[in-house]
Structure formats: C-alpha cells, structure tokens
Amino acid sequence: MLKVLKTLRWAQPVRALSAVTATSGTQAHVSPTTPVPEPDKLYSKLEIEMRGIDPAVLKSYTWFATTAAEHLGIEKGKCWSPRKAHHERMTLLKSVHIYKKHRVQYEVRTHFRYMNFHKLTGSTLDTFLEYIERNLPEGVALQASRTELQQVPEHLRQPPEQV
C-alpha cells in the first residue's frame, strides 16, 4: 500500500510552469536551493453549464468545446440539454385600464446546455477552461464547477491520541 502511494507521488504530474523553473534551476546551477516542484492538482470532473437565449449558438459552442477537448486529449463525458427552456413570464393587461379578460404575456427564455469532462490534471484544466472561456460568444453565460480530488489531511488520518 505504502509502496503504491510512493510510486503514485512520483507518477503525479507537476505543474507545467513550476516544472520548467525547476529544471532550469538545476541546469544553470545558479540557485543552490532548487524549488521543489509543486504537485499538480487532480480534478475528477469538470461540469460546464451554459445559458443563452439562442439554442443554436449554444449548440455551436458545444461543438467547439468538445472538438477542442478531443484535440487536447480530454475525456469527454455526457453532453446534454434539457428539452424545454426556462420561461420567465409576465402577464399584463392588454389595455390601459379595464378589460380584464384581455391579457398579454411577455416572456424571457433561457436555454440550458451541459457538458462534462473527466479526469483532468490542474494544468490541463486551467488551459482548457481558459481557452474555451476566451472564445465564449456574446449572450452566453458559462458556469464551470470543478471537482478536485484531495488526500485526507495528516491530522485526520489517525484518531487523536490525547483529547
């Protein structure tokens, strides 16, 4: 078990930029204390929710994001959208004063679309998310929730000795 953990720590990828600085430090021999590469974070899931007024724009954007994920080698999960949009309605009288039976409705529709990506390292997630956020079309709101994996902290592994 312990051995597995050790190998795992070695196999864990390092953050791209910090790795570069570490290697350059060793090559140049300028700084005697080479910075310890910070272990990268691991994300099991990245869920992206998009909201927009035009479903066609959302569809095109989903196609773009999934194509980019394919090029970057990211595992794609379920991509779906609810069949009906959210309608926010307001009902008013049609005339100014009376005629209660004649009403008029205004509505604002919000279409939703969801995408899921699995098994991303921290640097991959940052790169990918920034790329697709930069190319977000107008009139689309994006909401990205990420699930980070963490080890149990040291002080919670063993029951406290003195209480």
Binding site: R51, G52, I53, D54, H86, V108, E138, G139, V140, A141
Partner: peptide, 18 residues
Amino acid sequence: IGHRKSWNSWNTSTLKDA
C-alpha cells in the same frame, strides 16, 4: 423576435439568475 429576427442586445443580464 427569436423566430424571424433576432435580438439587438446580446448580453447575459436577461438570463435566469443573472
């Protein structure tokens, strides 16, 4: 609007919970 012609303002403020 939304069927034959589209919107003149494109922003996310009109969406739900914006």
